[in-house]
Write a protein that binds this DNA or RNA. Structure first.
Lengths: 198, 198
DNA sequence: ACCTGAACACCGTTCAAGT
DNA sequence: ACCTGAACACCGTTCAAGT
């Protein structure tokens, strides 16, 4: 069988049998569709025709559509551990560099369509929503901690961290409508938030 | 006509014929479903069974599902003119009160589920996305103008207005995961943004 | 173990026919 | 003018049968 199944993910890394698919293959293709064409493009029949198999094949690997979505979520958030590990790496930096790096990450982040798609999807899937909440809280904690280290009081740090993180989340959604801040403007924002009273 | 059709929107205001529905009835019921149960709950068959009619009835009033959605969008944004008119009313206020009112509106706004639902929906419907963009840009312009009136330079005002509006948008999405700012904290945020250099 | 093929339920869509 | 009833396409789901 020399037929090159024109399906996605042509990563021929010693699959058990030539044409056979794994659950991971389905999840990967589903994640790709989710990222590139949005939530409503993820359909079993679409994946089947992309892979050139029938739906029965899908139902061998997954109980139902939600199971596929959960697998995609696990896949996405296991990659997203990179972002979380990025958070860990960031915590080792000196405070001011740390805040600059985080602000740059919030605004300049990779895969924005992906981020927005996942958050939209989170509204329909509680397990995804929980994962997004965890990530947001973790980011808030790191930013808050940074302001505390800079010498701000608890309430001062809370206000500054909240403003910055909410703005970052808003940026994921609103950037298509509103002007995107430049690097210089990000510097100004941080200078503004790090300024001391009086 | 004592028969109380148990459908939604029981606003008996002299309908042309007892049991007959108008396109507006469908849009109103659809908007209600959208707000209360989310985008994926808005289904023609669901509305039909709620109204106690067949699908043919729906297709008398609308060309297809997208036409229903457009009608819902028009309905929503005509109500949302209240918010836009709120914007107009707000422009008459003295600057500092104006900013406080807007910040309070962003955070304390009515119908949050509705706001988030509409923005989610905007990702799938370009006409809705355009309406949301218009509203966001309008808000940004008003906030930006306020900072200019306070004596800030163009770039200073842009940074401050952008930060505040992005945070407001982020709040619509992130408030389920992150702590909700108190009234005092909103005051602090504004004080922070209105503080002059040096 | 992995997939085909044929069936079914559900939902959007069409249309001729009713009042 | 507004709706019924019956049809069809599409998609998720099931399952017996194939290799």
């Amino acid at each position: 069988m020399t037929q090159a199944t024109t399906g996605p993910g042509g990563t021929d890394e010693a699959s058990p049998r030539p044409g056979r698919l794994s659950a991971d293959d389905w999840a990967r293709a589903g994640l790709h569709l989710l990222m590139t064409e949005g939530r409503q493009a993820v359909k079993i029949s679409r994946l089947c025709s992309d892979f050139g198999v029938t739906k029965g094949s899908f139902y061998w690997h997954f109980a139902d559509f939600d199971a596929l979505m959960s697998a995609i979520a696990r896949l996405y958030f296991s990659r997203e551990l990179d972002a979380a590990r990025g958070l860990v790496a960031v915590e080792a930096m000196p405070v001011e560099e740390r805040l600059e790096t985080m602000a740059a990450m919030l605004v300049d982040s990779r895969a924005f369509e992906g981020e927005a798609a996942v958050r939209e999807w989170a509204r329909a899937d509680e397990s995804v929503a929980a994962a997004v909440r965890d990530l947001d809280q973790r980011i808030l904690r790191v930013v808050h901690e940074a302001f505390v280290e800079l010498g701000f009081s608890e309430p001062e740090a809370r206000v500054r961290a909240g403003l910055l993180v909410y703005a970052g989340i808003g940026f994921v959604y609103g950037r298509s409508a509103l002007p995107v801040p430049t690097v210089d403007e990000i510097h100004e924002i941080l200078a503004l938030l790090m300024r001391r009273d009086g």
